[in-house]
Amino acid sequence: MTTVFAVANQKGGVGKTTSSVNLAASLAATRKKVMLVDIDPQGNATTGSGVDKFDTDYTIYDVLCDDVAIEQAVTDTPEDSGFDLIAANGDLTAAEVQLLDMSAKEFRLRNALARVRDQYDYILIDCPPSLNMLTVNALTAADSVIVPIQCEYYALEGLTALMNTIEKIRMVLNPKLHIGGLLRTMYDPRNSLSNDVSNQLISHFGDKVYRTIIPRNVRLAEAPSHGAPVITYDPKSRGAVSYLALAGEILRREQAIKAQPVAAS
């Protein structure tokens, strides 16, 4: 059964795209069939996956706005990355306006993914760092939200706004949407504020906070400039080990959920 994750945070610079690319590669490394959908006009998940965002036949813009079948927009990433990609580039900026005039505008991505959903174990959607129609499409298409959070003061402020957004989407457009987990990123244990924020997250959200923590790591920061996930660029680095651990934690959570008995109606 396929799980669709939206990787989202309305605050930028929290490791959202880094997490999308590296989690996709890490899940693929566990022999899962994975698709990464880049729905951010910056196209950083595309370039970070080793694909030229200006040299693809079709992008997510064509799927959302021109009714191109999503199968035609699938782009292969380098073989050692192991996952399929739907690319994005600056053309997607126009989609934010064009979608407003379309019928079923909030469901364009969900309807597109329905064509290929059963072909994958996991579909990850890298969202823009803002609440717009692209993000709404991602949250409407998703089963679950992964929220990367940098352990700093303003992260908690942004988290409240995101939680309100997710709740509104759940009530109006996607009743099954839920928080999959909060992922602590760019973590520096030597920083007392990092530890304080981490403890506050656990206090407020309990087991919704992933046990895996993504550390500040030079190799993790370098990998996108080489167009590769960190597990390809430096598989022994702390960043690579952390994302592989996150993939394992997500798989265990999924297995636990599926193992739960179905309540009698």
Rank of each mutant, 00 (worst) to 15 (best):
I202A: 10
P235Q: 01
Q42I: 03
N199I: 04
L92Q: 07
I70V: 12
S130V: 12
I149V: 15
L244A: 09
D196C: 05
L177S: 02
S198D: 14
M133T: 12
A73D: 14
D40V: 08
A228S: 11
G90K: 11
K105Q: 08
S81D: 12
K176D: 15
I70K: 09
V34C: 10
G227I: 07
L109N: 01
R216S: 13
D40P: 02
G206F: 02
A73L: 01
H204M: 15
D121V: 14
G50Q: 03
L244R: 11
D121G: 06
Q260N: 09
F54P: 09
A263C: 02
T18Q: 05
V34A: 02
P78E: 09
A228I: 03
L124D: 06
A221P: 12
A263I: 14
M163N: 11
T56K: 01
K168A: 13
Q98M: 14
E152F: 06
L131N: 03
P128V: 12
P128W: 07
N132S: 14
T56G: 07
Y243D: 10
C151V: 03
K176H: 12
K32W: 00
A259H: 06
M171G: 14
M171I: 08
R170F: 03
V51A: 08
V230K: 04
N195I: 05
T140L: 07
T47N: 01
L182F: 15
E157S: 09
A8K: 11
G90R: 13
G13E: 05
N44C: 05
I250H: 07
N22W: 02
P175K: 08
